[in-house]
Design a protein around this nucleic acid. Structure first.
Lengths: 221, 221, 221, 221
DNA sequence: CGTTAAGCGAGACGGTACGTCGTGTCTTTGT
DNA sequence: ACAAAGACACGACGTACCGTCTCGCTTAACG
C-alpha cells in the first residue's frame, strides 16, 4: 500500500493522529510527553497476524492481542479504533508484498501476478479476512475508505500491466482495461469468497487465457 | 432458493428438522404437542429484514429480533441455529426473486438478469449481507454449504442463458460458460463489495458488451 | 436486621424489586419468565463473606465473587447495584447474630452485649467493613439509609436493656438512654476504627462500669 | 498536626524525604538540579480539597488532581505515596485548626472544643473523609499509623482540659480521663459516621452536660 | 374429556468480550 | 534534577450478547 510509505503503522487510524495532511516546517516538532513505543506497533501487528492465522477473524480478541503482544489493552485502543482497523493495518503493514511483474510479456506478467493466488495458505488467510473486512466496511465508512484504498493498491499492478500492453498496441484501444481488471480479479474473488469453487493454477490459467482471447491478444481456438 | 419450496421456513436448519426432502405419504403424521406457530416465522423474518436494514449485520442481535418480532428467544433458536442461518434464510425466503429471463436473445437476457443489480436499494442490502455471510462461512462449513448453494441458485439462470446460446451456436464451443459467469458476476461483486467502484446500468452494459465481444458474439468496435 | 425478615436476600436493593410496600391480594402473582435462582443468592453471599475475610473490602472484586460463587457477573449486577450494596447485604443477611440479652440485670446484660466485641476476629472483620461502608454511605444516600438501618438494628438491644432498667427505676428518668448508647457504642467504635486504641475485655468492662457510675446505678469508688 | 511544623508539606510521606525535623546549619546545602516548585504543593492541596468536596473520596483521582492543579502526575507521586496520604496531608496541612481552649472552666473549655463540630460544612467534609481514611487504614498499616497520630493530635486538647480539671480536684481521681475522651468523641463520631443521627449544638451540649454529671462535676437533675 | 406433550413469551442463567478508567511507573523534552 | 505531558502494563469496572434453561401458559391430538 504505497500511500502508507513513511507513515508509522496505524498512523492513518490513530485517533489523535496529527500530521495528517501536508507537513509543515514544524513537522519535527514533537508533542510533549512520552512518545509512543514504536516497538509496540510491531509487537501488536505480529500478534494480530499470529492470532488471525490461529483463530481466524472471529476468534481474534483484543485481550488476546494485548496479551500476546505483551501490551496493555489501552495501548491498542489508543492507536486503533477497533478490531477491524487493527486487522486492516496488519494486512497493509507492508507484510504481504504485491507482485509487480513487468517483463513486457502480457501473458507472463498476468500469470506472475495471479498465480500466487492459487496458494492454499494465502487463500485460507484471504477467505478469513477479506469478507470480514468488507462486512464491516459496509457499516463503517472510514473503514470502507481504507479497504478501497487497499484494494486499489492491490489491483494497481494489473492495471499497469494491461495499460502498458495497450500502449504497446497489443490491445485494442476500445477495451477498458479497468473493466478487464474487474473481470479477472472479480472472478477469482467470487470463486474464493462466495461460490466456493476452487481457484487453482488451472483455473487461473484458463481465466487469463480466456480474457486474452476476449481482448483479441491471441486468436481463439 | 428453489429447494426450500414446500418446506416451512428454516426447516433445513432447525435441529429436529425432520421432513427434510420430499414429504412422504405420512406428511400428515403430526408430532404430538402444540404445533409451531406459523405466523411467528413471518414475524421473525420481517424483523430480521427490518433490523438488518436499520443496523446492519453486526448490529443485528437475536434479542433484538425476538423483541421486534414479539417472540421468545427460544422460539428463534428452536427453528434456526444462529444469526447467520437466520439471515441466510431471510435472504432466501423467496423474498428476492431471481430473474429467469429466456427470450432467446443472449444480450437481452443477460441484461434482464444483471440490470436489476444496479438498483441502489438492492445493492445496499447485498453489500451489508453477502460479505458478512461469506465471513461467517469462512469459519462455519455448514453455513458455507448453504451459502454456496444459494450462490449456485442465483447464478443458475445466467448459466442457462449462456449454455442455451452456446447450444444455439451463437458462442464458440471452446469457451467455458461457467468461467464466463464467474467473470461477469465476479466483476460486479468485486466492485460492490471490495473496490467500492460504482455498479450502475452503464457499467453493467459495458461489462456485458465487453464479454459478448470477448466471446465472439458481436464483432469488436 | 429485623426489617429484612421474610424478604429474599437483596430484595431491598434489587433494581426491579417489585413487592416493595404493602402486598396486594396478587402478591403470589408471579412475574413471567424464569424466576431467579434463589440458591444463587446464598452462593453469592457465601462467596462475599469468604472473599472479604480473605482479601478485605478493597481486595474484593465482583469478578472474584462471581467466579467463587460459580455465577455470572450479570447475575450479581441483576440483584445488587455494586460492591457496597452487596457487602452490606452480606453483612445483614442474618449471618451475624446480634446478642439480645435480657436477664433483668443491667450490668450483666450490657456486658453480655458488648464483651463479644472484644473478639479479635470479629474486630478484624468490622474494622475492614464498617469504615468502608460508611465511606461509601457518605456519597450514596441509598446506601446510607441501609447502613443507618443496620446500625439502628444493632443498637436496639442496648437501647432496650437501658430503657427497661430505667422503667424498673434503676436509672434516673432525667438521663437520655439513647445518648448513653451513643456514648458506649461510640467509644468502642472510635477506638476500633479511628484511634487505634485496643478494645479488649478490660476496656469494655471499665467503660461499662464508668457509665453505670455516671448514671448513678452504682456508687462511685 | 503540630509535628509537621517547619517541614515542607508532604515531607513525612515523600519517598526521598530527607530534611525531616529541624533544619541544620547545612539547610542551604542544595541538592543538585532544579529545586522543587514549592507552589506546586499548594496547588495540589487546593485541588485535593476542591475535588474532595465536589466528588468525595471515591470520586477523587490522582489524574484529576494533577489536571486541576496544572501539575504532572509524577510530581504528585514524587511527594506522596498515594491517594490516602495525599488526602490525609490535605486534612492535616494546618488547614483545619484544632481548638485549644484553656480558660480553666471545664464546661466552657469542653464546649469550646466540641461545639465547632456542629458546623454543617465541617461535618460534610469529615463524613466524606474520615471513614474513607479509616477504611484504607484497615489495609495499610503505615496509613493507619498516620491516621492514629492525627486522631491523637485532635484529641490531645480535650485530654488536657480534663486532666487539668482533674489535677485541680474538680474530677475524682478514680475516673480515667482517656476513657472520657473516648466516650465524648466516640459518641459524636458514631452519630456522624455510622448512625446518621444529627450532631447539632443541642446534642453536643447534652452530651457534655451528661458526662459532667456522670463524672460528678455537677450534681444530677 | 382429561391426559400428554410440545410450543409459547418471558426472562434469568453461566460465560465471554467489550471498551473505559484509574493506578503507579517510565520516558520524553524543556527548564 | 525537577518540571509537564502523556504513554505504558495491569487489572477491575459495568454492559451487551450469546445460546441454554426454566417458569406458567396454551394448544392440539390421543386415549
Amino acid at each position: 500500500m504505497a500511500s502508507r510509505a513513511g507513515a508509522g503503522p496505524g498512523a492513518q487510524t490513530a485517533v489523535p493522529a496529527e500530521g495528517v495532511g501536508v507537513e509543515t516546517k514544524d513537522e519535527d516538532r514533537r508533542r510533549p510527553g512520552r512518545p509512543r513505543n514504536v516497538g509496540a506497533d510491531d509487537a501488536i501487528m505480529d500478534a494480530v497476524v499470529e492470532l488471525l492465522t490461529e483463530f481466524g477473524f472471529r476468534g481474534l480478541t483484543i485481550d488476546g492481542v494485548a496479551h500476546r503482544a505483551g501490551v496493555g489493552k489501552a495501548t491498542i485502543y489508543r492507536r486503533w479504533e477497533g478490531k477491524e482497523q487493527l486487522v486492516l493495518d496488519a494486512l497493509t503493514a507492508g507484510r504481504i508484498p504485491v507482485p509487480q511483474p513487468d517483463t513486457g510479456n502480457l501473458r507472463d506478467d498476468l500469470l506472475a501476478y495471479y498465480l500466487p493466488l492459487a496458494d492454499a495458505e494465502a487463500q485460507k488467510g484471504a477467505v478469513r479476512l477479506m469478507p470480514a473486512l468488507a462486512a464491516e466496511a459496509a457499516v463503517d465508512s472510514e473503514l470502507a475508505a481504507r479497504l478501497h484504498a487497499y484494494v486499489s493498491d492491490r489491483r494497481a499492478p494489473v492495471s499497469g500491466i494491461l495499460h502498458r500492453a495497450q500502449r504497446r498496441g497489443e490491445i485494442d484501444e476500445a477495451f477498458d482495461m479497468e473493466l478487464v481488471v474487474d473481470l479477472l480479479t472479480g472472478a477469482i474473488m467470487y470463486r474464493l469468497y462466495f461460490s466456493g469453487a476452487p481457484v487453482d493454477e488451472d483455473v487461473i490459467e484458463r481465466l487469463v487465457a480466456g480474457v486474452l482471447i476476449g481482448i483479441g491478444v491471441v486468436p481463439p481456438g
